[in-house]
Each structure stands twice: as C-alpha cells, then as structure tokens.
Write a protein that binds this DNA or RNA. Sequence first.
DNA 1: TACTAAATTTAGGCGCGCTTAACTTTTTAG
DNA 2: CTAAAAAGTTAAGCGCGCCTAAATTTAGTA
Lengths: 236, 236
Amino acid sequence: MSADRKSPGYSRSTEDYLKAIYELESEGGPAQTSAIADALGVAPPSVSGMVKRLSESGLLEHAPYRGVQLTRAGRRTALKMVRRHRILETYLTTKLGYDWDSVHDEAERMEHAVSDGLIERMAMALGYPRHDPHGAPIPTKDGEIDEQEALVPLIDVPVGSMAELRMVSDRDPELLRFMASLGLRVGVAFEVIGRQPFKGPTAIRLAGQHAKERDQVIGHELAENLSCVVLEGAVG
Amino acid sequence: MSADRKSPGYSRSTEDYLKAIYELESEGGPAQTSAIADALGVAPPSVSGMVKRLSESGLLEHAPYRGVQLTRAGRRTALKMVRRHRILETYLTTKLGYDWDSVHDEAERMEHAVSDGLIERMAMALGYPRHDPHGAPIPTKDGEIDEQEALVPLIDVPVGSMAELRMVSDRDPELLRFMASLGLRVGVAFEVIGRQPFKGPTAIRLAGQHAKERDQVIGHELAENLSCVVLEGAVG
DNA sequence: TACTAAATTTAGGCGCGCTTAACTTTTTAG
DNA sequence: CTAAAAAGTTAAGCGCGCCTAAATTTAGTA
Ligand SMILES: [Mn+2]
Ligand SMILES: [Mn+2]
Ligand SMILES: [Mn+2]
Ligand SMILES: [Mn+2]
C-alpha cells in the first residue's frame, strides 16, 4: 500500500509533453520539435528548452535536429497520463452527464491534479472500461494498451462496404457536436453508398435507423477523422 | 451561458493564498504574514512577495507590518475556492467511497483544476448539500455562507450539558481516523460527564450507543478541535 | 554542386513563486 | 524608557516554462 505518492511528482507541463510525444510517436517515427510545439500550442524554442530538461531527467532521448523518443520511464509516465485522461473522460460522461464534446478540456486539466487512488476508484465505479467515449483504448494500470485492430479512416473505406465507427478524435468539440447531430456515435454500423472524387463527400446509410435519418452525407474533412473497421464486402 | 471561463484564471498559488487568508480573517482581524506562511507551508518572505502581487491585482489590501485584508474581489474568489473544496470533499466521500480523513489532500489539488460547471454538476448530483463531511458549511454559488450558530469547542462545554458535535477541522487525517475509531462523527449527541483540570481529558457519554462504546474519554488537544453546539443544561 | 527554404537550436529575457541572509519595524519585558 | 525579542520586509538569487530574435543545421531544388 505505498505506490500512491504521485511518484516523482512531475509538473503539468512535463506530463503534457510526455503525453503529446507519446501520441506523436504512435503515428510512427520520432516526434519532431515543431509537431510537439503544434500539439501543445507553444513556440518551437520552448520545446527545445523543455526537451533538454526532459532528456536530462531521463524521460526521453534527443537526437538534435532529428527528433525525440521516449525512454522506458518516459513511456511509463505517458501511458499513465493517457489512462488518467481516458478514465476521466469516461467518468464525466457516464456519471456526471457530460456530453462527449465537452469532456476533453476538463480531463486535460484534471489529469494532473488527481491521485492514482482516485483514478482507480473511478475505474472501479465504471467497471473497468476498455474504451473512452471517443472509442480510444484505455491503458491498464500497468501500462498495457490494446493494439488497435486495423482502423481505416472513412475516406478509405470502399464504396459498397459495411463498416462500423470505432474511434474519433476528441480534440474538436465542434466536430463532435456535429457528429452527434447526425446520429454518428462510436459503435454505429453503416454502409458506404457513395463517394465523390476531388475530396468530395462520402455518402453512408446507417444501420437500424428510421428512414429520415438513415442516409447521411459526410464531408471530406470529417470523413478523414472517423476511424472505422470494415465489416465485409468491397468494391474496387 | 457564458460565466464558465475560469474567469481571470488565477494560479494555484493565488487561489490557495486567498483561501488561507479568508480562513484566517474569519478567526477575527487581519491575516498576519507569519500565520499565512504557516498555513501554506512557505517562508515568511514568500508571503511578503505574494502579498505584493495580490494587492497590485486588487485582491487584497496590505497594511505593512500589520496584515492583509481581502477586498470584495478577493473574498469572492476565496469563497469560490471554499465552495469547490467542500463540494469536492463531499462528492469524494459520498460518491466514491473516500473516508473523511483522506479527502482533504485530494480536494486541495482538484479545487484548482475543475471547472465551475463540474462543481455545479457534482453539487446537483449530491442534492445541493449544505455541509461538507467535516460539518463545515458550503457557500452557495453566489458566495453566501451560513453564519455558524455559536459553536463551542468541547473543552468549553460545561460538565453536565448535552451537546452535539457539529464540526471538526479537516486538516489532520490522524485525528480524524482516531475520532472515527471512537464513534465520533458529525451530528452525534452526547453528555459531558466529567472533565479533569490542568488540560486533562473530558469524559462524554454518547447518546444511543451500546454500552461498550457509550463512554469515551477525550484528550485535551482533541477536545479543542471539536466544535459543538450546547443543547441544554449547564453547570458552572 | 550551390543556393535557398524550412526546421531547429541558441541567446537573451521575463514573470512566477520559492529560498536564505540581512535589515527594519513593532512588540514585549525589565 | 530602553533594550531585547519577535515579526515583517527588502535584497539577491534560483528553477521553471514561456517568449522573440538571431544563428545554425538540414532538406530541397536548380
Ligand atoms: Mn481527450
Ligand atoms: Mn493535460
Ligand atoms: Mn479540506
Ligand atoms: Mn488548494
């Protein structure tokens, strides 16, 4: 019963840098300075400075002018923050009536203020959920995270296929509100019934819906953000 | 629907200073530098420096060498923090199974990270409680706080009186755990059946308890911390 | 290969919130 | 009333995390 001190007790900035770097790394290759700056809304020199401190603390390794990679310790902390963030988002929507478009900002602040114990109590109250409200997998307490089965952005799902919406970015509340207004939620199944070229819209038909809301036209930018699993069939 | 930005967005330190000063002021007179330093666990010169910044921001007034007083704006923010702290403590005990001795530290950090909206959702989920788990009154959203009816520390409750425990400091987890082990909770009624002089213990008899746990002997320091209301009777 | 554009790092600086050491003011005791 | 003790402030300095401007490195193109 002693693992509950906020361990070394990193600052909010440190935790956010590690989490952002983790997410950038999981898109392949080392995280670059400007991408980190972009993700955190700071200027590139701020990142250079912070990267120096973090690598001196052994949380990441820096190949100058090339990018940055988390060490084992850095990844451990990053995954802890990802778990916190996603448990918090799930708790707020499930237990306190938040909409899925408004939980991100709240979680972004709270993740740095709560104890391990509170996160575990929330997880228990939720029945140890595997996914957050946007479909993202929740790492376990020990830092294990489900490999995503091959998810495909809606723009790449072939016309004629059946697919299911599995995940969407939680970063744009406007987009999430719009999705909700279309009846698009994680878990919904649909058929891709058409797509126009030149970044045109994708047309889908939702499974098990009333006639009025069954067919939807999804713009290109939105379709890029919808991660789906293809269920069957394909047309070249 | 626009009053939800964390208003001017004060820092954690600022919010803790204002809250501590509010609590010191409510014990009468202006808050003194060393008392503030003591409450926050910082050195006195740190307080001098912070007091300068806070008075330049219009949150308090400083009479050099005399002490500080909250302005209207300072008091408003302080009461907001007190509300947050007490709602959080109540939520954690009621909804997440925390014991009353472990909520303070968690609330002390979370109070700076949550939004107004989350506090109101918690308050609603709790049915707008008037008191926190330690018996302290919870200010309303508009900053109204119940005047405490005259509370008396147990050491001043006359032998022979009936009294009820109404409030206890939330700052010492050890003390709270010990109280729980004696069956002493907010709301419990008892008769004062004896008291020894020279800072000796006070003996009480709890109402409606089984024989074995009915009579308790309370040491002087603990008795100082128990705020009671006297119900009837008095013996010089 | 040579030059340019883009990305990154270095230099210099700022506010916050904290420290210790030294100095000043106020309070208390004799 | 005066001298010592206590309380408070000022001075100097530090790490964090951010900024802009300037220098450097890398990548891309003619
Ligand atoms: Mn999120
Ligand atoms: Mn965050
Ligand atoms: Mn408390
Ligand atoms: Mn606090």
